[in-house]
Design a protein around this nucleic acid. Structure first.
Lengths: 204, 204
DNA sequence: AAGGAAAATGACATGATGTCAATAATACAT
DNA sequence: ATGTATTATTGACATCATGTCATTTTCCTT
């Protein structure tokens, strides 16, 4: 809590340097993408010495992971939505809302997500961060389906884990399409269509 | 046809060099993945001079694209399956078969697909190759849905293009999971589950 | 004010890329 | 056959990014 006030001047300098670097790194990443971005560009923009970057971070990957933390936090929040529908209609509404919120992230955080997408393909560490988010969602959806099956709302013969993955995958791929700006339809239209098929396919 | 017989000796040498390089490149890619693989390793393995690689190809990307051509061809073949179902049941069968064939590719071509997946994240050229395959499938599925809607087999109120994308996305993501060996369920089980939800959701 | 510790620095070693002028191998004309 | 033109191959080189580390700078403590 009050720890932050006991910071001495040189620790403060360290923190400021770190911040300068992170800010510069963000600009460079957004401008050039993960692959083309270099440490040299970042330290130049931040007005610090080359080696300094390696004092604070292990490399590009490490920097991006820190920069992505906000965004990842938001994804985790969306995954936490509670799900206790009483009827099929209610289930559909909750699912539609969650899918919409998820896809909206692509629009809100488009720029950083573009960098992130590229980084996922290159860096194992970053790929694992995204995998964790994915598994969190799938785990959650899986539980939701199991709940719906117990409540006799959803078809009991379907493997709920496989169904959950399949549903998340549709959402995820649309997310990346929107991130890449490759999609002309509105988020609402997309969410409506995929939710309609999924819920009619899964629910009784 | 008979063109190949009219090759003179030095053209033949050129072709053999190219082949040697491709073969070596494949080994290196499979061993180290796209990102870590270097031209130096390849020319060493192929016993040719460094510059020679750049005579035949523009770089790593270019080489991988050539190596992937077989595999890509197979995807295009799967996308071409004809679709004129008379009943819902018949539609389900065709769709199940196609999904299974698609996912089986992940197992059959796992090694090269692993390299390919990494390359998609790094190289624009390769990413575009995959996008072309994806759009081919989506285009085809889209037409199939439209046909089913006209035949009063599928629900007419759904946007067939959005539905097609969503369906393909589930398939594609499962494909990559299988490629990465991250999936324990059988291809058949996966195909059965996702097809069941999709067809029940889409068809009347 | 001196000495010690934390933070910052940039020169360096390493390794990858793509280019290009030079060289080797082959074809062709006489 | 021999000389010349054409095509294929080569590896040294310029360039650029990375990560390390011995050194320097800045700040804290006593």
């Amino acid at each position: 809590m009050t720890d932050e006030k006991v910071i001495d001047k040189r620790h403060l300098r360290s923190i400021k340097t770190r911040e300068k670097l992170l800010e510069a790194a963000k600009e460079v990443f957004l401008e050039d993408g993960f692959h083309k971005a270099t440490i040299s560009q970042m330290i130049k923009k931040a007005n610090i010495g080359y080696g300094t970057a390696y004092v604070h971070f292990e490399g590009k990957e490490d920097i991006l992971i820190v920069l992505m933390e906000n965004v990842m936090e938001k994804f985790y929040e969306i995954a936490e939505v509670s799900f206790f529908p009483k009827t099929k209609k209610e289930a559909m509404e909750i699912i539609l809302e969650q899918a919409t919120a998820f896809l909206k992230m692509a629009e809100t955080e488009r720029n950083m997500m573009q960098v992130f997408e590229q980084a996922i393909g290159i860096s194992t560490a970053i790929s694992n961060k995204w995998k964790a988010i994915r598994e969190k969602f799938i785990q959650r959806i899986s539980e939701d389906i199991a709940y719906a099956q117990e409540s006799r709302l959803a078809r009991p013969e379907l493997n709920h884990k496989l169904a959950a993955r399949g549903w998340f995958f549709t959402n995820e791929m649309y997310l990346w399409e929107i991130v890449r700006n490759e999609h002309l339809d509105t988020v609402e239209e997309v969410a409506k269509t995929i939710t309609a098929i999924y819920t009619r396919g899964l629910y009784l």
